[in-house]
Design a protein around this nucleic acid. Structure first.
Lengths: 207, 207
DNA sequence: AATAAATTTGACTCAAGAGTCAAATTTATA
DNA sequence: TATAAATTTGACTCTTGAGTCAAATTTATT
């Protein structure tokens, strides 16, 4: 009996609780990130974020250490997802162009889904966090740049300054969050598809 | 004599003074706009903006009514310039594509020159100002959309959803301000040129 | 039901930064 | 040099919003 309860205490409950806690914490970050995207980091107050979750500001601090921590994690959440996508398409596609098409499509798709958004407010992060986020962004940009360069090497992509090309493409993605409202006239899938098409012809070598 | 001095008072001096005042006011707005772009609207304090002009915060309020007024006018300044550019290319170019190339090049060029930057913080404007800015942005987007549609009609531009195409192109421009630092590896002219090229092939009908 | 842990809250403190204003300073004019 | 207008400032006030904390409430366990 006492052994059983010990067991429960040590295995079942803690897991449950921890999972609960983590889920709620993620919910806080997601919800806040959406508010940041809609209204901007500084215009979205903690009180407001709390209210939209049916909580009080004080309760938020049970899950996070500071507002900045939320911003940081919101950034990281997106870059984690993007890293995943980079990994996911790694084996696929043949030419550089094909690989780029797959990845770009995944990116566009991600951004038109569930609240995931590239945030631009990096200046509101303190030195260390800011550096980390910039590093992560750089990592993604480099992954894309590699595909572009591979495409230039195998002649599937037109030769040009790879960096500018990548910025051009990433710019379009970032801007997506500004104008795209889920449930609008155009579906996320359509946009992703059209972005890929647009990107492709803009970049591909005429065959 | 008294007439002469009256005259001077009424004609010469005031003009000088007014011009001086206006020039300084514009300088305040430009300098602040640059700070907003670099550090974000809320991270750039009035004190900081004043200091970079060799002034005191209080002095700023001799030229502007509020921080928000600065943000508003900074936005308007850019849209005025863009309207000018739209007008400037109106007569030129033959096909829709050619017109679009000219305009897009001018836009890119403007953004890589003297501190003019598309600001994204629109949520920090109060209702009326915000509405005005959104209207101005809409006006520009519509002007670009018209060119795209003209191009689709005369077959110089590939048929697709014009709106998405325009957002794609404007996104790349907006993102420019995030990564482009004047005096970097690539000159503004080169970027403008490459953006036009990128845009063109992305959009043009294969001939 | 008693107890302990987890969660939430009301009522605070504190700092930062926008905005004000009377007084000081500078500039131009006669 | 005297004077008046334009410009700038130091020293404020006021608001907003982040963050804290002891106490209240809820949830799970025996």
């Amino acid at each position: 009996m006492s052994v059983t309860s010990q067991h429960k205490l040590a295995e079942n409950r803690p897991f449950d609780r921890e999972a609960q806690y983590n889920a709620k914490r993620r919910a806080v970050i997601r919800s806040a990130a959406a508010a940041f995207r809609r209204r901007g980091y500084h215009n979205a107050s903690m009180t407001e974020i709390a209210k939209s979750l049916g909580l009080t500001k004080a309760a938020l601090y049970y899950y996070v250490k500071s507002k900045e921590e939320i911003l940081f994690e919101a950034h990281i959440m997106v870059y984690d997802k993007m890293d995943e996508l980079v990994k996911a398409v790694r084996g696929q596609g043949d030419t550089g162009l094909e690989k780029l098409q797959l990845l770009y499509g995944e990116f566009a798709h991600m951004l038109t889904r569930d609240g995931l958004a590239l945030l631009t407010d990096i200046d509101s992060l303190n030195g260390e966090n800011q550096e980390t986020v910039l590093k992560r962004r750089g990592k993604i940009e480099r992954a894309v740049t590699r595909l572009v360069e591979k495409g230039m090497a195998d002649d599937s992509i037109k030769k040009a300054d790879a960096k500018v090309t990548v910025f051009f493409l990433m710019g379009a993605l970032n801007w997506l969050n500004v104008w795209y409202e889920a449930g609008g006239r155009i579906s996320g899938d359509d946009i992703a598809q059209q972005f890929v098409a647009q990107m492709s012809v803009g970049v591909a070598n005429p065959t």
